[in-house]
């Protein structure tokens, strides 16, 4: 089973929930947590383990052979991403803009462009007890997160085909989130009961509805009375899996990079509720 933990707005508690849920389940059962927020991966700050794998990840970009080039200009013409410019004497490749479609190389009449790998990031995997943790980080200056997210998911499918997989997803509603959530069985949307949280949640709900995903909401920094997110979920028949009360203690523990389920009863209760709702292993039965 694959579960994504996502949110429209950043900073609502995605990583807190992902790491605590993974560590809590791992007390008794095997689980894999993958951090797919490759631009700013944070899950690893809260977990430790022994490294079991490190792999550089690449995307394919064209490399120009001056000797073979007949300067026909076809490469520039077929590139929809302005990643290749054919000047009278040279051809310039802008690797960061390249989407690796291969059109320029395969349609070059002189075979003057070959596709070569360019490093975009690094995948690392760790193990501690029942918990496997996988993290990919995008190299600074690389613009596209999607290829690295896709490759990380393939790696997970190869290495953990039948595992319980939790995916800490990137924030927002655009291409990185789609890539991270499109193959999952369920999406947990983490939000907070402010107009910002609610506004971005409605965008996330629209995204998941478009993707035809089953989803539920976890309200972080929950308010006992007049919680606008709770009201929204009720009106729209969206299941609220759990609520975590607003507290300075939680914020302080987070600031120190500490796990919360052991010291914050509310967090443990929330995790139990999620485990029960999704029929996951572990938790207090």
């Amino acid at each position: 089973m694959k579960i994504a933990i996502a949110s429209g707005k950043g900073g609502t508690g995605k990583t807190t929930l992902s790491t605590n849920l993974a560590a809590y389940i791992a007390q008794t059962h095997p689980v894999v947590l993958a951090d797919l927020d490759v631009e700013e991966p944070n899950s690893g700050l809260f977990l430790s383990g022994s490294p079991i794998a490190t792999e550089d990840k690449f995307k394919m970009v064209p490399s120009w052979d001056a000797e073979k080039c007949i300067h026909c200009g076809n490469c520039q013409k077929v590139c929809n991403f302005n990643a290749i410019i054919s000047l009278p004497k040279i051809v310039m490749v802008f690797e960061k803009l390249c989407h690796s479609c291969y059109a320029c190389a395969e349609l070059c009449p002189a075979k003057a462009l070959t596709m070569v790998p360019e490093k975009i990031g690094t995948l690392k995997a760790y193990k501690q007890g029942n918990l496997h943790f996988v993290e990919s980080r995008l190299d600074i200056g690389q613009e596209m997160a999607v290829p690295l997210i896709g490759q990380t998911e393939s790696w997970l499918n190869d290495h953990f085909p039948d595992a319980l997989l939790l995916l800490d997803s990137p924030p927002g509603t655009s291409c990185p989130v789609i890539e991270a959530t499109k193959d999952v069985d369920f999406v947990i949307l983490v939000t907070e009961p402010t107009p910002f949280g609610l506004h971005d949640l409605t965008l996330a709900v629209e995204t998941m509805t478009t993707l035809k995903k089953e989803f539920g909401v976890v309200i972080n920094r929950h308010r006992e009375t007049g919680d606008i997110v709770e009201q929204y979920c009720e009106q729209n028949d969206i299941p609220v899996l759990a609520c975590i009360a607003d507290s300075r203690l939680v914020a302080e523990l987070y600031s120190q990079g500490k796990m919360m389920y052991k010291s914050v009863p509310d967090m443990q209760q929330a995790l139990d509720n999620i485990i029960r709702f999704l029929h996951l292993p572990g938790g207090r039965q």
Binding site: G10, E39, E40, L138, Q142, A145
Partner: peptide
């Protein structure tokens, strides 16, 4: 600006 380090930020 937007969060992250990818294309919208750049």
């Amino acid at each position: 600006g937007s969060p992250g380090i990818g294309c919208p930020v750049i």
